[in-house]
């Protein structure tokens, strides 16, 4: 049985991998030495996920529309299974993310890979977000309600 903390840690790195730019991920993963070899359990495959919203943002769910998703599963030679499900149709991205997911499950590699891959990717994403937030913040507005003369 997998421990709950382990699941939330894995969810966190899978989220970072899904949002990463593929070229960045390829570069960082390419720079890692002594990688295990991988068997493809499921070659990268593109399909659809129906995206759901909620009535009024918080109410009952409804189906909004689909999104393309590419998935891939690999098994490392040490027996760890890595999965990836990534929005879009980028087979390379899904494959890389599945490999990194498998590698991160290997206890002795985790800390190193978190530092060399996951943290830099998360920081890049955060930096992009921060710039976006500043641009958006510059458009924040205060509307003044003017009292009309005849109303006193």
């Amino acid at each position: 049985m997998i421990h709950k903390d382990n699941i939330s840690q894995r969810q966190a790195w899978m989220a970072v991998l899904s949002k990463a730019a593929c070229e960045e991920l390829a570069m960082l993963w390419g720079a890692v030495s002594d990688k295990p070899s991988y068997e493809l359990l499921r070659k990268p495959e593109t399909g659809l996920v129906m995206v759901r919203g909620r009535m009024g943002g918080t109410g009952k769910p409804f189906n909004t529309g689909e999104a393309t998703v590419t998935r891939c599963s690999v098994r490392s030679d040490s027996g760890k299974t890595g999965h990836a499900y990534i929005l879009g149709r980028d087979h390379k991205h899904a494959r890389l993310a599945a490999e990194v997911d498998a590698a991160l499950q290997q206890d002795e590699n985790r800390e190193g890979l978190m530092t060399s891959i996951i943290m830099p990717l998360a920081e890049q994403h955060e930096a992009k977000l921060n710039l976006h937030r500043k641009k958006v913040a510059a458009t924040k507005v205060d509307f003044f309600t003017l009292v009309r003369g005849e109303d006193e």
Binding site: S37, Y38, E39, L40, L41, R42, K43
Partner: peptide, 17 residues
């Protein structure tokens, strides 16, 4: 990188098509 797979399918070792 070692893979046992053909161009269109799922690896034979895991019993998919």
């Amino acid at each position: 990188m070692q893979t046992i797979i053909n161009q269109t399918g799922i690896s034979a070792s895991t019993a998919g098509f």
